[in-house]
Amino acid sequence: MSSAASLTSEHLGISFGGHKAVDDVSCAFHAGELTVVVGPNGAGKTTWFNLISGQLTPTTGRILLGDREITRLSPSARAKAGIGRAFQLTNLFPRLTVLENVRLAVQAREGQGPRLFVKASALSHLTDEAMSYLEAARLGAVAHLPAAALPHGDQRKLEVALLLAMEPKIFMFDEPTAGMSLDEAPVILELIGEIKKDTSRTVLLVEHKMDVVRALADRIVVLHNGQLVADGAPADVMKLELVREIYLGTGAEEVA
């Protein structure tokens, strides 16, 4: 570990009625690094993400953002501290417009939410900022539709646009291309590539697709049955017998 870690998972674990969904996972992440988390279904990847972004509270271990312990913070406090999370199942504000979805994220980051006696429509810089994130996510043309009216691929893009609008230090993507068509997925990957260019950012990505992993990963972490079983450079991790077994297994499922 050359530089100080931007995010640390220390002996992190959670049990659901005796079943250890995440079991003593220790791992440190660094700015400028994109880490892909792989593992078969049920390995605990999403649960681990939920522990880090605060949707679940761990039964063991600590989470550090830089030097600051955030283990007991609420999800909103973690979001303000710089942890941004995109979700595996599309998780938007369905009856609000695409623009309003992103505007809400901008408004939250700028701390304008509690303002009571100013007209929201008068804060045009929020709208302008929101539009710029939508343009980046190639959603400018559908800004005025309700989020629920978008096709699945566009909803995934909106999910990424929301994350961009939060301007976090830690970007967490949970299968951002899941269920997307082949011609749509590259837009998302391009966006993630863009995010990665800024070396002050730390990117965590759960992904199954082999080509995605090869194209983006600086480092691969493998989870299996809730435990961290491998961690290293992509070329090294891919070679491991255990990884080939569990990971190529899921890879084959993906193809089918």
Partner: peptide, 20 residues
């Protein structure tokens, strides 16, 4: 107001409102 927008966001998706 901006607060009114947040209220709608909470109605639509409480968990995501917290997450952003």
């Amino acid at each position: 107001s901006p607060l009114g927008r947040v209220l709608k966001a909470i109605r639509e998706n409480e968990m995501r409102a917290e997450a952003i």
